[in-house]
Amino acid sequence: MVTHEFSRESRLLTPEHFSNVFKNPSRFGSSHFTILVTQNENNINRLGLAIAKKRVKLAVQRNRVKRIIRESYRLNQHKLPHIDMVVMVKSGIDQLENQQIEQQLAYIWRKIKRRQPK
C-alpha cells in the first residue's frame, strides 16, 4: 500500500544527516533548484531543505517554497529510489507561481528516478 505521508522518518533531521549528503552527492537541477542526492541504507527516502535567506528574502516566500517542495515530495516519494536528498533554491524562485515551482520539481523527480538505481 502506498502512503502519502511525510513523517519524521522522511526528513533529514541532524547536521550529521545533512553532512552525509553534502560529502559526495549526485547533483540534479533546474533553473531554480539544485538537489543533492546520495544513496542511503534505510528503506525510505529522506528530504532536507536548505532555503537560504540570501536567496529568498521574505520569510513568507521561504515558507511558501518549503510548503510546495514538501507537498511535491510527499506525493512523489513512493516513485523515487531509496535516497537522502537536500533541496536548495536559486535566486528568483520567489518570483515564480506555485504551479511553475511544482512543474520544475516534477521534472527533477523524473530525472532522479531515471538516473538513480532502485
Rank of each mutant, 00 (worst) to 15 (best):
I112Y: 11
L49W: 10
G92L: 13
R55H: 14
I35C: 07
L47M: 10
L96C: 03
S7E: 02
E97A: 09
V86P: 01
I93S: 09
Q116M: 15
F33L: 02
E41D: 14
F22P: 01
E71H: 12
V86W: 07
P25W: 07
R115V: 00
I44V: 05
T3P: 05
S10V: 03
P15Q: 00
L75F: 06
Q95M: 09
N42L: 15
N24F: 08
R110Q: 14
N43A: 09
A106W: 03
V60K: 14
G48L: 10
I68G: 04
K53M: 02
H17A: 14
E5M: 03
K57N: 12
V37R: 03
G29L: 03
K53I: 05
S7P: 07
S91N: 12
G29E: 02
E102F: 07
R70W: 07
R115H: 12
R8V: 02
Q104K: 06
S7N: 11
E41N: 15
R67V: 07
A52N: 12
Q39V: 08
N24K: 15
F6Y: 13
K111A: 15
S30P: 01
D94M: 10
Q95S: 10
Q61F: 00
F18D: 08
W109L: 11
Y73D: 09
Q61K: 15
K57S: 12
V89T: 15
Y107F: 15
S7Q: 06
W109Y: 00
H17S: 13
F18T: 04
L80M: 00
K79F: 01
K23C: 00
V86Y: 01
V87T: 03
D84T: 10
L58C: 06
P15M: 07
E102V: 10
Q77H: 12
Q77Y: 01
R115T: 00
R114C: 07
N42Q: 12
H4Q: 12
A52C: 12
S30G: 11
P15R: 03
S91V: 11
S72V: 02
R55N: 15
F6L: 15
Q61I: 08
A50P: 02
R115F: 00
Q116K: 14
Q95K: 15
T3V: 14
Q39C: 00
E97N: 08
E5C: 13
S19Q: 09
L36F: 14
N98C: 07
L36W: 01
T38P: 04
R110E: 14
V87L: 00
T3L: 15
S30T: 08
L47H: 11
K79L: 13
N20W: 06
T38W: 08
A52L: 13
L13M: 05
R62V: 08
L12I: 12
E5F: 01
P15D: 06
F22Q: 06
E9R: 13
